[in-house]
Every structure is written in structure tokens, then in C-alpha cells.
């Protein structure tokens, strides 16, 4: 049985650094919601520059303020106005207690980027998990790794028996951690392991992990009722998701047999 970690950047070997490839559900969902709530740029009309103040011919004028200079001053005035608008949009979000969300027009002002398009800026030196705040106790990460490995093998074997002629499967592994700050750092627990998809011999070869994860990530922003999974192991079958108390993160694993 061979396991590979699936990420939006491509596949990785399943090893004890798996924690760097987990997707934190809450922060990604929050980022999506903030993007939706962000006021439209065109809605911010309050500008100190009168729209008519810059009107006028661009040809050479008797006072030697020629067209090029005039166009230049118009553009720089537009830049300034744009900056004022950007700052105002960021301020409004800030005073509402929200982070300012980057977009193509305001990228320079934005401290973070949306999590549904995680890129180099959020995954700089310390890896994805560090960037999104799923830094866990090293000891706990080791224990979880051993548990996930063993349980993933068990469920993959069940999937092999269930899906005839299959060559592999995709598993989503959910962990949960207390949201409150703890002296010794986060100590997550395994929440569930679900078989997301069975892979046939052909689909296993053609499987595009980047596309698959991008779809999964964008679906986090549009939660919808999904059918009960056919194959799932829940550590505590009675326990339901509690977003108030716990944060959740997902690891995607591809298994091949």
C-alpha cells in the first residue's frame, strides 16, 4: 500500500511532515466569507477630487501647461484617488473587525491573500500549516502520524474490497484541535477518515492531484449537503462537528495498491 499527500502544489510523500500539508477548514471558510462581504470598489464614491476639476483640453495651452504634463497630473491624481479609496476600504473592513482582503486592484495594501488560492505569499518560510496557524506539538504530530498511517491502511483495505477492479482511492483525514490558546501549543486529535473517491487503474494514472485539491478547496467556500460517505471511520461516532469549540483541518491522501 502506497500513500501520497495531495496538495494544491502537487503530490508529496506521506511522511511525518504531513502536518505542513493540512488545509485548515475554518480559516479558509472565513477568508471566503470575507471576500463575499467586502464592499464593492465602485460603491465607495466618497472622493475628495471633484470629477470636473480635471476636465479640460489636453492640447498645448497658452500658459505652457501642455497636454503631456496635464495628462500626467491627471494620472497621478487618479492614482492618489485610487489609493485613498483603497485605504478607505481597508479602514472600513478594519473597523468592522475584518481583515482587508486582497484583490487585483488593492494587492499592495493587503496583508493576506485569500486562502482558496494559497500561494507563495502564505506559504513562505514555515510551510502552509505555519502560514495558516495549524502549528501543533511535535510529539502530538508524531503520534497522529502513526495513528493516521495505521487507520488509513485499514480503511484503504476496506475500500479495496468494496470497489472491485479499483487501483487506489483518495482519503480525506480530518483532525480537530481546541481553538483556545494553550501553554504547550496545539494538540490535535484525529476526528475522522473518509474515503472520498475510488480510483480505477485508468483514473489512478490520469489523476490530477492539483485540480482535485483546487476543487476541494473551492468547495469549502460553498458548503452544500453531501450524501453520507460510504466508507468512513469516526474516532467517536457520537461526536458531531463543533465549530465553536474546535478548529478542523483536512489532509488529502491518495492510496494505491
Amino acid at each position: 500500500m502506497r500513500f501520497t499527500v495531495l496538495t494544491h502544489k502537487g503530490p508529496y510523500n506521506f511522511s511525518s511532515d504531513y502536518i505542513n500539508h493540512m488545509y485548515p477548514v475554518d480559516s479558509m471558510y472565513k477568508a471566503c466569507k470575507q471576500i463575499e462581504k467586502e464592499p464593492k470598489f465602485s460603491d465607495i464614491s466618497d472622493t475628495p477630487v471633484k470629477p470636473t476639476s480635471l476636465a479640460g483640453p489636453l492640447e498645448k495651452l497658452p500658459n505652457d501647461l501642455n497636454g503631456v504634463k496635464r495628462k500626467q497630473s491627471l494620472l497621478s491624481e487618479l492614482d492618489r484617488t485610487l489609493n485613498i479609496r483603497n485605504a478607505r476600504a481597508a479602514d472600513r473592513l478594519y473597523w468592522k473587525g475584518q481583515s482587508s482582503i486582497p484583490r487585483s486592484a488593492t494587492r499592495a495594501l493587503a496583508p493576506i491573500v485569500p486562502s482558496d488560492s494559497l500561494n507563495k505569499r502564505t506559504t513562505t518560510t514555515a510551510g502552509l500549516a505555519m502560514a495558516v496557524g495549524v502549528v501543533v506539538q511535535y510529539a502530538r504530530a508524531v503520534v497522529l502520524f502513526e495513528i493516521i498511517k495505521k487507520e488509513a491502511e485499514k480503511i484503504a483495505r476496506k475500500a479495496k474490497d468494496k470497489y472491485q477492479d479499483s487501483a487506489g482511492c483518495v482519503l480525506s483525514i480530518n483532525i480537530k484541535y481546541l481553538k483556545v490558546k494553550r501553554d504547550y501549543g496545539r494538540a490535535p486529535n484525529l476526528f475522522s477518515i473518509t474515503v472520498d473517491k475510488g480510483l480505477s487503474a485508468v483514473s489512478s494514472i490520469e489523476f490530477n492531484s492539483i485540480k482535485y485539491i483546487q476543487n476541494k478547496v473551492s468547495n469549502i467556500c460553498k458548503p452544500a449537503l453531501s450524501p453520507e460517505p460510504e466508507l468512513q471511520v469516526k474516532v467517536d461516532p457520537e461526536e458531531s462537528v463543533d465549530h465553536g469549540k474546535y478548529g478542523y483541518a483536512i489532509l488529502y491522501l491518495k492510496c494505491e495498491w
Partner: peptide, 18 residues
């Protein structure tokens, strides 16, 4: 000791703050 550690923002997502 606990308070000393709790007062640090070790979960910061900003690399320079972290």
C-alpha cells in the same frame, strides 16, 4: 511561567511577527 508564554503570539500568521 505559563503567563509568560501565553503572552506571546506564537500563532501569528505574519512571518515577521512570528
Amino acid at each position: 511561567f505559563s503567563f509568560e508564554v501565553q503572552s506571546l503570539d506564537l500563532d501569528s500568521q505574519d512571518p515577521s511577527v512570528y
